Computed example of a mutant assay.
Amino acid sequence: MRNKNIVRSSVSLLALAIASQAGAIELSAGDYKAELYGYARFNATYDIDEDIGISTRAGAFSAINTGAAEDNEVTGHFGADAVQTRLGLRATSPEGVKVVVEGDFRPGTLRLRHGFGEYKGVLLGQTWSNYNSFVGNTTTLDFDSLAGLAGLQGRIAQARYTTGALSISAEEPITNFIDGAGVTSGGKQGLPTLTARFEDSAGGLSYSAAALVQEVGYDTGTADDSIIGYAAFAAAKMALGDMMTLQGTVSYTDGANSYLYRSGENFGAEDAYVLGGDLESIAGYGGSVGVGLDLGGGNKANIGYGLVTVDWDDAEADGVAVGGKSETNQNLMANYLWSPVKNVMMGVEYAYFKRENVNGDDGDASRIMFAGQYNF
């Protein structure tokens, strides 16, 4: 599904933080300022229970065996890749026009991550959704990170205006629905998704809140319907002295589960279901909490937990085939990171994933991940 392709591009905060701090290569000429930046990244995992790794060796809820299938698991899987490797160019004109073009190699070929221009608060192009925040996210090595993070942890085409701490946008919609037989289809893209976000900080507290509205529709030529879906999140991080941070996120959606991070088989769940030709919205909620420790000397440790739940009760009561759908996804990640020299990061992470389906079947998996990143 298209939704999965978009959200699958989600980033781990660790990669962002290190890349932004790395010394980029300056390519300035005259009054134009430009920087070439990026990193080479190696990821390796050992899946203890079953193989749930996808590109960048991120863990996938969709790969977890549930119910009787757990009895036939083949244990012990090693995998490695370097497709998270990234390359980008930032340029600023004498007039203050900013342009960013960035790509990486997930899932194995070069793809566009960012491609946008910005001038006096007006942004046009593809970049992080405005319905998104990293403020409350816990640093993980896993590229797809924790369930329940704030908003769409991916990039999308949009028109955005920012003034101070407030930003609003009209974005390419991401909608889908499920029919009575349990078949999922992409929704009709009738109107853009509208978002608003407020993000600021005060002292040791950083915070963010956002909301969106979208049209969820379908039209087969002989039958059609549409409903309005909405979503909201809040995120915050508090610095507890120089060594510790406490952070978290909470989200609620109704008819907009595409924006409830990792709520479906691996990413967004369906927004609605069809009943007698009419669309009925599906609600969901989720959140995450974590602690970060700066141990000094380039050493850091983090632990985070995330959970999302989708309310399938109405769909199930109306006879929709949702028994095998993921109802609750949760995961826990704990890592230790060290920087032996500037612009180099090494890390190891333990992760636990659990999936519970509507029909009561569940399954879990544990894994160990190692990562090495070299920035420029």
Rank of each mutant, 00 (worst) to 15 (best):
G117H: 13
G203P: 03
L87K: 08
E199K: 13
V274A: 01
N72L: 05
V101S: 14
Y336M: 09
Y285M: 10
T75F: 03
Q214D: 09
Y336C: 05
G290Y: 07
A69W: 03
A82S: 08
S145N: 13
A17L: 14
Q247V: 02
A334G: 09
F61Q: 03
T175V: 10
L124R: 07
I52F: 07
L212P: 02
W128C: 10
L87H: 04
L337W: 07
L166T: 05
A150D: 05
D219F: 05
G187L: 04
F370T: 07
L166S: 02
G296T: 01
R90A: 07
E356W: 06
S167V: 04
A223N: 13
G103M: 07
G164E: 03
D51A: 08
A235N: 05
N132A: 10
F61C: 06
S28D: 11
V7W: 00
V122W: 15
M345T: 09
G324L: 07
A209R: 13
L337D: 13
G319P: 07
D313Y: 00
A301K: 07
A80T: 09
V100Q: 15
L13F: 11
A371C: 02
V99Y: 13
N302C: 05
I52W: 06
Y350T: 08
A315D: 02
N5I: 02
L279T: 06
A69G: 10
I168R: 11
T175E: 10
F198I: 15
G76S: 15
Q126P: 00
G190I: 04
G372I: 01
N137Y: 04
G284A: 09
L13T: 12
T193D: 11
M345K: 06
E327N: 13
F78Y: 08
F370Y: 08
A181V: 04
S9P: 00
N3M: 11
E118G: 02
A157G: 15
G204C: 01
I52H: 07
